[in-house]
Amino acid sequence: MDEALWAFGRVSGFVSLALFTFSVLLGILNRSGRRLLVLPRFSISLLHRNIALLATVFLGLHVGSLLLDSYAKLNVIDVLVPFLGAYRPFWQGLGTVALDLVAAVVVTGLLRHRLGQRTFKAIHWLTYAMWPIALAHAIGNGTDGTGKWFLVLAVASVAAVGGAVIWRLSATFLETAKAREGGLR
């Protein structure tokens, strides 16, 4: 049983991170106001949200299964407060930080209409901190974190997210950038 929980805990963590990576990329694409091939903008928006929610579910499974697993020696306090863990407390602490950030981003995302755009957006920006922290946690804490295949994937996703962020900061990021260019003199 423990063996299964341990395996499941690792796999769900990996799946959660992969889904978050995908959601971050879709979020940046969505911000540009562009479509993705045949996908309309509202579908990208829904995909961004739903994939993030699915990632959160896997994150819950990741934490939950490792809590139950005796090998991981995780307790409830470690889930909420970072850097107190028994095994690699720093790298595990990063996971806790990422988890807390995910909680804040997801809750404010779901309550966007009640909180107002300003609060929502301020918190949503934390995603840009959450994602690299989560990735660092996976590399530093994961059993396969320093494995070759994982590092290749990690480098690829850093390139993808980093590229997306650079694109986001560029002058032509917005779909309407060109049309609006002359308007503000």
């Binding site: 049309a179 609006r180 002359g182 308007g183 503000l184 003199r185």
Partner: peptide, 15 residues
């Protein structure tokens, strides 16, 4: 410069 149609439309018309 709060509302898009004004922010971009007025300079366009002025041009």
């Amino acid at each position: 410069r709060q509302c898009g149609p004004c922010m971009f439309g007025l300079p366009a018309m002025a041009g």
